[in-house]
Design a protein around this nucleic acid. Structure first.
Lengths: 154, 154
DNA sequence: GTTTGACCTCAAGCTTACTTGAGGCCGTAC
DNA sequence: GTACGGCCTCAAGTAAGCTTGAGGTCAAAC
């Protein structure tokens, strides 16, 4: 992940940000930002020199994309998560609230999956279930049921 | 993820499992099992017909691989996690305990990252920080510092 | 005036994690 | 016997998520 040479970081008169500055502020590579735009996850306008200009509210969107990446949520799912958040103007408080609630739900699901696994692994340590007969990890029942994949009971 | 035609599930006299049966029991595709073997994450012996035979303790290993996948841990990291767990014989209670502790650590880290993000997102909802001036998500400080990527404070 | 740096486009390449396809072996079922 | 199912190998293909490279524009610095 060689990051792009950091852009010039200064205040623009009109308060819009160039791609280099956005990259520096969000930690996302310039190439990644262009890629996200291609996917429709973010948007930019162009200045008189055809260079991308980002409104400040886009920083938050990009921050959320980075977050999602970190916890393994695929970019496609983000389209859905961002469905009600406008790209062309700063989202209203209400719009962000709604979206944030959606995010919280996702995060909570993720956290609960991990917590279940922690508990099950603890059980494995505790019982030393070498026989596999009663291992919660291999026979997690519906706690881990996820459309057709993963361990299952026979 | 089109799963392989489910293998014949019956008790083998010698208590070893064919690849189809392992696939059915773990939920991992037959092709995935061969792939994991190529990576050295699992191992098998061959019968007189050159078909893979898995000892039962491999089921657990495969279950852990599936778990890792689900929470977004790359397969390469699993080599490390499995470093002290033998492939050629059923791991001892102690060996599994050690490995399990490593797993718990990983899971806990993951969970804490998510919890931090949840807290930060809650802050965003609470403060309605449209100005971005004080948004914890964009300026999470060292709580999210991770070798060079992610949001950062300017 | 030419060099440098930030930006542009478009196409190709890369990594991870598998899946699919072609061609073949073997044992049981009809 | 031949059809079928399960397995084998090896090579190629796929999808996600980007990165890299080639070739070009423009403005400011030296």
């Amino acid at each position: 992940m060689a990051s792009y040479p950091s852009g010039e970081v200064r205040a623009t008169p009109d308060d819009w940000l160039g791609i280099g500055e956005v990259s520096a502020r969000t930690g996302a590579a310039v190439s990644a930002l262009r890629f996200y735009e291609e996917l429709g996850l973010i948007a930019s306008e162009r200045d008189e020199r055809n260079q991308r200009r980002y409104p400040r509210h886009m920083l938050r969107r990009i921050a959320l994309i980075s977050v999602a990446k970190r916890i393994g949520i695929p970019l496609q799912d983000l389209r859905e998560a961002f469905a009600d958040v406008p790209l062309d103007r700063p989202p209203s408080h209400q719009e962000w609230q709604r979206a944030s609630r959606g995010w919280k739900r996702r995060l909570e699901e993720r956290r609960q999956t991990i917590e279940r696994l922690e508990a099950e692994l603890t059980g494995c340590i505790g019982c030393g279930c070498l026989s596999m007969k009663a291992c919660a990890l291999l026979n997690p029942g519906d706690a881990l049921a996820e459309d057709g994949v993963g361990p299952r009971r026979l």
